[in-house]
Amino acid sequence: MADLLNAFAIAGKAFFGFQAIFFALLAIGINVHFGYTGLLNFGQIAFAMLGGFGIAISVSQWGLNFWLGVVIGLVSAVVLALLLGLPTLRLRADYLAIVTIATAEGLRLVFRSVSATPVTGGTRGLSAFNGSFIDLAPWETQTRHRVLGTSWSGGELWVALVGWSLVALTSLLVWQLMRSPWGRVVKAIREDEDAVRALGKNVYAYKMQALVLGGIFGALGGMIYAIGTGSAIPDQYQNANTFLAYAALILGGAARVLGPVLGSMLLLFILQFADTLLRALIENGVIPEGLLSSTDVAQIRFVLVGIGLMLLLVFRPQGIFGDRREVMLDAR
């Protein structure tokens, strides 16, 4: 029983921690791309990497101001979105998917390569760039506090506070955009581009705007992640994160403002909960060592999440916030 409570507490920290913010921002961006506009962006993590490394390189390599680093990260995400969109958005949806997935993997390999090491720090990455941000905290960052049964440092709380504020602001932005005529055009593009063209809307421009906007959200997510971990390592930005963000989005409900937010929190909660509980059960001998060893837990928890997602798609395909009638229209 104590194990269970402990697992709940630790998973609760994951529920509110910076990783949940990271996935929430990635998923909000994907929601703008895929949920509202119908763009298949399979390389969201590339935007996050540019965001994180935008700060890291600017501060630790070039000695620039932290906030200048933020601007550089956002601008490079915009440039990436334009580069990806210009050749592909006139074509069918599949082309963007191919190009984004290749770019995400390619960029990571370039960043970790030997020839890029003088700038990106190669496989070891960069660190010590978030000091001036942590110093902004209005409280002592070294002391630890008991929150909801687990221990948070002042710095962690500060990152979480800023991060969740950012999530709230982006969600508000998405909410306002999607109830405006702009959002109506974008949703119509998801349904049928040609019909929208025939009604006098410049579909290409709208798709580009949506791609840039979602990319900026991804970059913000990458910044929070880099600040939260205090380091930027290319291999942290594996493209598997893009698909975890997709999972979070579908769990919460696509094309819903709060879908990606709650989805990310729950995804992180489930992963952490399964991890802690399974380890405790193996230690106590409840689960015999022959069946499952503690080294397998890291993999098994993803299997559990996968099974959970399958059950979700069978019994609640619209996700937590979605509208079942809306999702079922696709079956026609």
């Binding site: 932005l173 306002q176 955009l177 405006s180 005529p181 702009w182 959002g183 109506r184 055009v185 949703k187 119509a188 998801r190 349904e191 049928d192 040609d194 019909a195 929208v196 025939a198 009604l199 006098g200 809307k201 705007q209 809306e326 229209l329 696709d330 026609r332």
Partner: peptide, 29 residues
Amino acid sequence: TKALSRLTVLQNMLLGAQGQRGESFLRAL
């Protein structure tokens, strides 16, 4: 026929209107 399935009938109609100020990104806000 290209009905925009997951938009309501009224939203379909409103999409047809020309020169909408709220269809620009910044003014939508």
